[in-house]
Nucleic acid binder design. Structure first.
Ligand SMILES: O=c1ccn([C@H]2C[C@H](O)[C@@H](COP(=O)(O)OP(=O)(O)OP(=O)(O)O)O2)c(=O)[nH]1
Ligand SMILES: [Mg+2]
Length: 579
DNA sequence: TCACAGCGGAC
DNA sequence: GTCCGC
DNA sequence: GTGA
């Protein structure tokens, strides 16, 4: 074992406000970017990061969403010694910004469920430290009751299909002599398809980590006697891309839950916890799709992508209209600043955090004092422009200009406005273009668009900024901004040059929405296929940790509908690809 | 325990 | 490899 | 955080 040298960068000694202090974080790892940053900062200001709970520890620094009982439960302790200060993460940032050790007793540093000792040097309580709980009997969870689900399995099979709008594609899917079938017959993908779950599952009980289970607010966890409900969902229900959906109706019965879970998602995004954030969003998606109000845990649990913990939260929201854990935590001023900075084009979580940590309070201050990339500079200068939505009519005006100019160069070229515009939105965040031309390779596309069209429109004053040009293999992109004559508002443009033999895959990609794309790609994945903006591939070989070792063989690229068919997804017109 | 979509480019 | 963007 |  090598001794870890703790030589991370440190501030000059006289500024080390945490010198001599030993911090234990909770959770005590740096897997979360925000916490990683906090830990680095603490060390920078002289603190020692303790990896294990020990007697040297002076402060336990707890994440905002965590509660004191959870900490104790994890540590298997009844209490912490009075000499240890339990503080919220906010404590660190406040101390740093005031360049002083603040009073740990201030209410804003309080951790939920923690009551500070009266006087911390009480000799009476100093002695019995770190009493470790006797081992708790884990609650055994019985293995599956597989009976219930058998019945659940076969219910509304084709309600969805029946209500489909495209009769032709339904017919296609139902035909036995479906041309698509050929693909399946000859495809080796087939080999590992139906198989059969060799139910060797002999797990007697969930190896269940009892730790980290943030219990309910109410102290004694009322261990319910209810059986675990087993989910069984098939492709029909599990994948968002299998549903037509037109977006939220105003009367969504689960509005309370979705808004709160959405906030949770935002919170996790903000701390850089990408997977929890995505999980919350997925759950919000299924919930906002659900036609009736979900009241109970079990009801929620039956829905795709809603597990035990979210189900519990949903129940709480249904009855109380809020979530206690969330309540105050969400709208911190520091977070508002972070959110503001993160909306700068060219700045994400890392850059925005950096600016926050540098102490900048406004965008003006960032421009003055921080080092910026060209794109970020433009992003701040046109902060309002780029965060505004574009009315559909204005998109059409831009389209006119680009089409006319392009046709002067070569009338055979075709322009399709994709993105949210193609999905029928009345407003768009940017303008996404697909530029293509029959029987034209990538080289000529580039020659016409990048080398001729873009320079001309820049000359004429329509294009006002260029952010990035990408060009690899068959397709290219150009990112920039435009401004209509008579207007001062800059709009982001995204041109995607596509050879006609890849138009179908490109349309799917560029039409989105993002959730739909990911769902469709995930579905492809489960069938041993891979979908990207260039086409649908088979025989993709992936090694350990999902590393691709072979690109696979192209199955289909030019026909949008055909890709749906092969994936056995009923055709979705763009307006229905809103997930 | 692993994946969660999959890609290009700047640094 | 990380960050940012689509 | 969920699902396989
Ligand atoms: O992470 C992403 C982002 C985008 N896209 C695809 C889908 C999306 O529809 C299209 C255009 O991207 P854009 O960011 O412009 O989204 P949009 O759907 O057009 O919405 P907006 O109105 O905000 O521009 O590119 C993805 O596949 N993955
Ligand atoms: Mg768009």
């Amino acid at each position: 074992k090598r001794k870890r040298r703790n030589m991370a960068k440190q501030v000059p000694e006289d500024q080390q406000i945490f010198k001599g202090l030993h911090f234990y974080f909770f959770p005590n790892d740096d897997k979360n970017p925000a916490r990683k940053m906090r830990i680095a900062k603490a060390i920078e200001f002289g603190a020692q990061w303790e990896r294990e709970m020990n007697k040297n520890i002076t402060h336990v620094v707890v994440d905002k969403l965590m509660q004191y009982p959870t900490v104790l439960k994890y540590l298997k302790m009844n209490s912490l010694p009075n000499s240890v200060h339990v503080v919220s993460e906010i404590y660190l940032s406040e101390c740093i910004s005031y360049h002083a050790l603040l009073n740990v007793g201030q209410p804003q540093f309080r951790v939920k469920g923690y009551v500070a000792p009266e006087h911390s040097d009480d000799p009476a309580t100093a002695a019995p430290t770190f009493s470790i709980n006797s081992v708790k009997p884990l609650e055994l969870k019985l293995a599956d009751e597989k009976i219930i689900l058998r019945q659940l399995a076969r219910q509304e099979i084709s309600e969805e299909e029946i209500s489909l709008e495209s009769a032709t594609s339904v017919a296609l899917l139902l035909q036995d002599s479906d041309p698509v079938e050929d693909f399946y017959r000859q495809s080796p993908v087939n080999a590992n398809r139906p198989a059969d779950p060799q139910a060797t599952t002999t797990e007697e009980f969930d190896s269940g980590s009892p730790i980290m289970d943030e219990g309910s607010e109410t102290d004694s966890a009322v261990i319910p006697t209810n059986q675990p409900i087993i989910k069984r969902q098939d492709i029909q229900t599990k994948f968002r891309c299998m549903h037509k959906h037109i977006g939220d109706q105003p009367g969504n019965p689960n509005a309370a839950a979705t808004t709160i879970l959405q906030q949770m998602a935002d919170y996790y995004s903000q701390t850089g916890d990408e997977w929890p954030a995505k999980a919350y969003r997925k759950a919000t998606g299924t919930l906002s799709n659900h036609p009736t109000k979900v009241w109970t845990k079990d009801e929620a649990l039956a829905l795709p992508h809603i597990g035990k913990r979210l189900a519990q939260k949903i129940e709480e929201i249904a009855f109380t209209n809020h979530l206690r854990r969330l309540h105050k935590v969400i709208a911190e001023p520091a977070d508002a600043l972070l959110r503001t900075f993160m909306k700068v084009y060219g700045a994400g979580f890392a850059k925005a955090s950096e600016w926050v940590n540098q102490g900048h309070k406004t965008l003006d201050e960032v421009v003055e004092k921080a080092k910026l990339s060209d794109n970020q500079r433009v992003g701040i200068k046109h902060y309002a422009d780029f965060n505004a939505r574009i009315p559909r009519e204005e998109v059409a005006q831009h389209a006119d200009i680009i089409r006319k100019s392009l046709h002067k160069i070569d009338p055979a070229f075709e322009v399709i406005v994709g993105g949210s515009y193609r999905r029928g939105s009345t407003q768009s965040g940017d303008i996404d273009w697909i530029v293509t031309c029959p029987n034209t390779g990538p080289a000529h596309l580039r020659a016409v668009v990048i080398d001729k069209l873009v320079p001309r429109l820049t000359e004429s004053g329509f294009l006002v900024a260029s952010f990035a040009t990408t060009s690899r293999g068959s397709e290219s992109k150009w990112h920039g901004a435009s401004c209509l004559t008579g207007s001062t508002i800059w709009r982001r443009l995204d041109l995607f040059l596509v050879p006609s033999n890849e138009l179908g895959a490109a349309l799917i990609y560029f039409t989105g929405d993002t959730v739909f794309n990911r769902s469709l790609r995930l579905l492809a994945n489960t069938k041993g296929l891979r979908l990207n903006q260039r086409g649908l591939y088979k025989d993709v070989i992936r090694g350990r940790r999902h590393i691709k070792s072979s690109k696979g063989i192209l199955v289909e690229a030019k026909d949008e509908r055909r890709i749906f068919e092969i994936l056995r997804v009923p055709w979705r017109p763009p307006e229905h690809r809103i997930c």
